[in-house]
Each structure stands twice: as C-alpha cells, then as structure tokens.
C-alpha cells in the first residue's frame, strides 16, 4: 500500500486576531511577526491516518508531497518525522497565486509522476482558505473515487472502509483503490514526533520537482490557470462594543442580562 499525503504549510491559525493583518493592495495576508507558519492541522491528521494504515499493513509506504514555498520543507519534514518515508516539494514561481483547481493540477501531476500510488490522503480543508476542494479536485483529475470528511479509515472490503461525518450522523462507505480520502478533526490528534525522529527526518533529502519535471504547461497552473479570481480580501467589522453586566453577585449580573434581553424583546 503506497499512500500519498498532501500537506500544506499555512500561517498559524492560532495567530491572535489582533496580529492578523492584510495587505489590501495585494489581497494577501501579512505574515505575523515572530509566528512561524505551520502544517495545516487537518493535513497532520491525514498523515496520522496514513501512518496508522502503514503500521497495520506490512510493506506499506507513505510519501508526503507539498506544493508551496521553499519554507514548506518544514511541513514536509514534520510529516517525515511522524513516520513518512519520502517527501517531495513542488516549488516553482509558476505555481504561485493559483486556485484550488491549479493546486490540484500540480498535485495530481506529481502523484502520476510518482506512480504506483494506491491512495491519496488530504486534510478535509486547508485551515487558511477553508475551501475543502483540493482533495476532491485531485480525485477528479486522477479519475479516482473519493470519500470526504473521514473520522475513520482502514484497509478492508473492496479497498478502503471509511467512516464519514455527515451533518446529521455518520456514514460507513467502502471504496475500491486507488482512491482519495479527506480526513477530518474527528479522526483524532496526530502523533508528536520525538527528538530522534525529528533529527532523522532533518537528514532526509526532500525531492524537488518544478514545472518542467511535472510536464505541465505554465498557462495551466498558478495565477495563469486559475478560474476563481480573488477580487478582495478584507477583515470584517466586528459588532459594537460589548456591554458587560455589572453586579456584585452572579444573581445580580444574571438579572441585569435578563432585563436587557427582555427590553430587546429577545426573551
């Protein structure tokens, strides 16, 4: 079983809202001072899901790929430290400022180039843009079946058995291989690599593939190939100033709140 994990490096979502700034002229987020980018949390969980299958099935292999800046090496190394076998960075100026479609085009081309891939695991969505598209678009590009928002995944049945989180419950689904699975936070926490594993991962060579290596046309990727155009990125206005309920006791505070809500005709 050869599983490819797609990993994305993103600005730390735990960045305090006060440090979150936008470069309005370029519609880009200004990296917060002193806060390093991180592996998108859902991708870490996807890596965990892949590694558990590797451990349960002898002879399996996990490859982590990331499209992004040179700094995305850190995200790749993190998944290598978790236990992945190989890493590939897809870095080329031509890939920049694309949309979900162009990202999927690049990832799918890399997966085809790797060859002999049985499954692709992605996070349910990247925790920066929160679109939740790339896994599905990779599946469509490759022509593979897909199961999204998984809280459990294991080998079995026709290929993979997946438990999905739906809005009103859970669904068990079986898919033949090769297939794409997107993994949700309900799966559980990813493992924390220990120091020796981090050091071993640091020594591993990450393969670098550029536009030419993937046989893609520059017009099909990045900004040139994107169909979804970002017109404006802005910080929404928050509501008015909060009115804090005064009072010496919880009863007094609660009474003040109930009075306000009644005056507003909400209660």
């Amino acid at each position: 079983m050869h599983i490819v994990v797609c990993a994305k490096q993103i600005p730390d979502p735990e960045t305090p809202p006060s440090a979150f700034k936008i470069d309005a002229a370029n519609n880009k987020v200004i990296p917060a001072q002193g806060i390093a980018p991180v592996l998108s949390q859902f991708d870490g969980i996807a890596a965990e899901a892949a590694l558990r299958i590797k451990e349960a099935n002898a002879g399996s292999k996990v490859t982590v790929i990331s499209m992004g800046a040179e700094s995305a090496q850190a995200a790749i190394k993190q998944v290598l430290a978790m236990g992945a076998d190989e890493g590939v960075l897809l870095n080329d100026p031509a890939f920049e400022d694309g949309d979900s479609h162009t990202t999927a085009t690049v990832l799918a081309a890399a997966i085809k180039k790797l060859g002999n891939v049985d499954a692709v695991f992605c996070g349910r969505q990247a925790a920066d843009w929160d679109m939740g598209q790339v896994g599905l678009l990779v599946a469509e590009d490759l022509g593979w079946p897909v199961a999204i928002i998984a809280k459990g995944v294991a080998m079995g049945g026709a290929g993979l058995q997946v438990q999905r989180v739906l809005e009103n419950g859970f669904e068990s689904l079986e898919t033949p291989l090769p297939a794409v699975v997107t993994v949700s936070n309900e799966f559980g926490e990813p493992r924390y690599p220990k120091l020796p594993q981090i050091m071993a991962a640091a020594k591993k060579t990450v393969t670098n593939w550029k536009l030419g290596d993937l046989g893609l046309d520059a017009g099909a990727v990045g900004k040139a190939g994107s169909r979804l155009k970002l017109e404006k990125l802005f910080i929404p206005e928050k509501g008015g100033k909060v009115e804090l309920m005064e009072g010496d006791t919880p009863q007094a505070q609660a009474a003040a709140l109930v009075a306000r809500l009644q005056a507003d005709k909400i209660l």
């Binding site: 600005p11 979502p13 979150f20 936008i22 925790a127 920066d128 843009w129 155009k229 970002l230 990125l233």
Partner: peptide
Amino acid sequence: PAYGGNALATYSIA
C-alpha cells in the same frame, strides 16, 4: 469567510 473567519474574501469566477 477565509483564514478561519479572520477575513472575508470576495471572488469572481471567469
């Protein structure tokens, strides 16, 4: 919403 709700993004589709 984008960036976990920290931002709003407006798109067009070509």
